[in-house]
Design a protein around this nucleic acid. Structure first.
Lengths: 208, 208, 208, 208
DNA sequence: GATGAATGAGGCTTCATTCAT
DNA sequence: AATGAATGAAGCCTCATTCAT
């Protein structure tokens, strides 16, 4: 009768992801506490009961949603820097651009960051996991490239080497800016990115 | 019996601030939606009804709490840069230190930033106001100093001049870090500050 | 300083009545339960506390308000019919006009009737009192005139004599109409009155 | 276990009516503002939440309750007079008896009238609707019969013809009487009805 | 698997009432 | 006499969660 009802099995397999995608949108819109599971259900075209068939509680929905959205996030991350070639400053440049793409430009990661900031105290495990899986590895990548660059005489032995995350701080600023002022303050991402990379590179560069 | 229960008038004048201070703590702990006004009342040593004597709704309590906490925040801000003397790089240095002190080290401003991120969509006016009163003025200060420094030949004409806020991005990173990972990742603020300033200054410095 | 504050004593003596007048207006506007004593106070230009200085409870305010408004209502009632002269039909005519004036045209009595209907079950004493002081006496007046008229051969011995209040039913209808449909259905009171009296008189008149 | 707990579907279809019936009783007992939805729920053997599953607000419950109770009220009304035969005075007689039955004797309609009087200002739409659906049609019926009767020479061209509702005023008086004085003043409805009809008929009758 | 009616704890808000000043 | 800050009981409404179908 209903053509879209043909592959029931297929639907069934997709349901959880559909629910989590709907949950993402609703949680983005209202935050954790103010989101009603009923609205999540409506957006996913199921009923409240169905959500409880797949997830035990609202907290669980939120937690799984974050996992779901983070899943295919930085899979290539661990090895990205190793594939880079050329001068260390060009490698660092590539790495920063990579981070910008992930952090500042992508809506999902921006909203995930917002979730961590807003609901972190309610979901400390989430924060831990993100630190270990995403933040720490990224910092490590930066650290390696910078240290190697210093060793190679490309970068000076600046005190900033002790805080490699500084080089990604403009990306976070951009992310925050669009999170907070979104429509209010338009920023040309490309130009901003190049400007910040230019500043960082000059800041790190060895004298002469 | 209770010595602090002296003057009714004095209490009345203090009550709103007491309530807003209590509200700050509770909202910090649970976020807007998950905070119960009853807990705010208990923390302020009043009853629920008293809160409603001073504030119309929970939203209003939140809004006024933010105003209250922001009030004496950047009063000297507009004129700070003008009082600075010496080379432009030393002025910029002083300005960055000033911002660090305000943004990265102060718990109140950190949590206010968290509120803006977490509840901004529910309180768009708040975000507007903070942009106009705090963010824009700070950016303007940076812009003036940098432009003057460029004109004086102290700083190079870098593309970063178009985005003066970049120079405060490490401060925001630090603020975010302590917001998110607080206990998990201790950072030596002083060292971090100096490291980031060193990086920024070198990045802006005129060649030769 | 404030000229209206001169005669404090005078104010004091008038306060209760001012409060009750204000209460009347507010109770008319919202009904008993939905009226806030605070609004009554505001309308009377006093504060809530003052109301409690004069009246024990909200119920008491309502009760006294009704008494206050009913006080000078039918003082002449008991003796009105006795002062009438002429034919019984002219006396009845005068009596009906008198009732119309009191019941159908006067806002205070109309709203009092509404109070009795709306809040009667909460204030049974009020209803009792009004029945004994106003309704019963009026009916008795009608009864006397009608009986005398029948005895005199002016009116026929109709079964309606057993229910003298029937002759005032059009007045109540009019009162109800304006209570309910007020603006919706304008009725020319004078014409309506004369029409209903004409009908009643003809209905009571002795044949031939 | 509980035999009445049979079919879920059947319950679902019945619930709203059960709730509205319970609401009627509670609103009758206390009036709109003083009625607690919790008591309505208890009377309907459901919980508070269930009421909100079917109705959006307390106002909505009240509004729908009135609709529910008025629904099968005057369905035959529009055509009743047309089915009447015989002399116009016998038709009018039948019509008045019909109205008595509906208005003065029926508890539901009496309490509905009380609601309109008591809560009319809070629910102006309700008053409008009742005027258009019930009051106006009834008046129109009377008007037609009286005019035809006048044209046929059965009734005189009295000024009361301009206010046909006068003929139902005794019925409203009776309704009011039982609303207000209920137990206090017992009236024999049948006798009262006949007495008032006798009066009205004589009042309208053509001379000779 | 999915539904959606039903539950009930819990939070926001109101307001009659009190009482120190 | 009058004030108005403070109280706290009570009611409306929401929504996560359950469960019979």
């Amino acid at each position: 009768m209903k053509p879209e009802m043909t592959k029931r099995a297929r639907r069934k397999a997709e349901r959880p992801a559909e629910i989590l995608d709907a949950a993402f949108e609703e949680f983005v819109k209202n935050g954790y506490a103010a989101t009603r599971l009923e609205d999540v259900a409506a957006r996913a075209n199921v009923t409240k009961g169905t959500i409880y068939f797949y997830f035990e509680t609202k907290e669980r929905v939120f937690d799984e949603m974050i996992r779901h959205k983070s899943r295919a996030f930085f899979p290539e991350l661990g090895s990205y820097a190793e594939e880079l070639e050329g001068s260390y400053s060009s490698r660092l440049h590539a790495l920063i651009v990579f981070v910008y793409r992930k952090i500042a430009e992508d809506r999902t990661s921006r909203e995930t960051l917002r979730f961590l900031i807003a609901e972190g105290s309610r979901f400390p495990d989430l924060v831990d996991r993100h630190y270990q899986e995403f933040v720490r590895p990224v910092i490590d990548q930066f650290e390696k490239v910078i240290e190697a660059g210093v060793a190679a005489g490309e970068f000076r032995a600046s005190p900033a080497s002790a805080f490699p995350e500084i080089v990604m701080s403009p990306a976070l600023l951009l992310s925050l800016w669009s999170m907070l002022f979104g429509s209010r303050k338009e920023t040309d991402i490309t130009v901003f990115t190049e400007a910040s990379i230019d500043l960082i590179m000059k800041g790190l560069a060895a004298g002469r």
